[in-house]
Amino acid sequence: MADVVPMDLVVLADDEGNSVSIKVSGPESTWSVGLAAEIVVETPFVSGRCLLILSASKVRAWGSALDSLEAGEDIAWMQMDRGPTVSIQLNGDRGCPEVVVEDETTSMVTVRVPIDLPPDWVAAHQERLRELVAAWGLLA
């Protein structure tokens, strides 16, 4: 695998200062087939981080989740795994999408972040996914 710099798989952000991102730092040192990553939540009210290991199956599931979002369906990504769950509700209570990060196994905290996303955000994330797969050869 080539020497690749860290990259963002997910960047959901708006002009109000609300964001949820997933930052991939590189190969996981304790598991040779995974990537070390973290979920980062930042809002004017609350912020936090949660460590995460991305396997090829989680990356494939993110691709499927993006397809569902593109079709207008809400998603819950990584829901059946140990570790955090990221859900996206396209029509949240505040008239914009809401991202819900649940970390039931470690911190037992759930954060709901309304984010006014641009119209092309799904396509941009499909491109981010392609770039991550190409950089890390994760699905090869």
Rank of each mutant, 00 (worst) to 15 (best):
S29D: 09
A37T: 11
R49I: 15
E38Y: 10
I75K: 01
V46Q: 11
L117F: 00
E42Q: 15
G34L: 11
C50N: 11
I88L: 13
P97S: 06
C96E: 13
A134H: 02
E104F: 15
V113E: 05
V109D: 12
L35D: 03
S64A: 11
L69M: 05
E38I: 10
S47D: 11
G95E: 08
R94W: 13
T106R: 14
S87R: 11
A65C: 06
T30C: 13
E131D: 13
V24K: 04
A61F: 04
K23P: 13
S55L: 15
R128H: 02
G48N: 01
P114R: 03
I75W: 01
L51P: 15
I39T: 08
S21W: 06
V20T: 08
D93M: 12
G92H: 07
S68G: 08
G83Y: 07
L69K: 00
A36H: 05
V101M: 04
V41K: 01
A56M: 09
R130I: 04
D116K: 10
V40Q: 09
M80Q: 15
N91F: 14
T43K: 04
G48V: 01
W62K: 03
E127N: 09
L129N: 00
A61V: 05
E70V: 05
R130K: 12
G63L: 00
G92N: 08
P27S: 12
I53W: 09
H125E: 03
T106E: 14
W62P: 03
D120Y: 07
V86L: 05
Q79T: 12
I75Y: 01
V122I: 13
G95K: 06
W121L: 02
V100F: 03
A71E: 10
R130M: 05
S107F: 10
A36G: 06
I88N: 05
V113D: 05
V40A: 10
E131F: 08
E102F: 08
D120G: 08
A76Y: 10
R128C: 00
S19T: 06
L66N: 02
I115V: 07
R49Y: 12
A124M: 10
V41T: 06
V111P: 07
D120T: 09
I88C: 08
S47A: 14
S57T: 12
I53C: 12
D103T: 09
S21F: 05
V99M: 02
I22P: 04
V40I: 14
I115K: 02
S19L: 06
F45Y: 14
G95S: 09
A76P: 09
I39N: 05
E38N: 13
S32I: 15
G63Y: 00
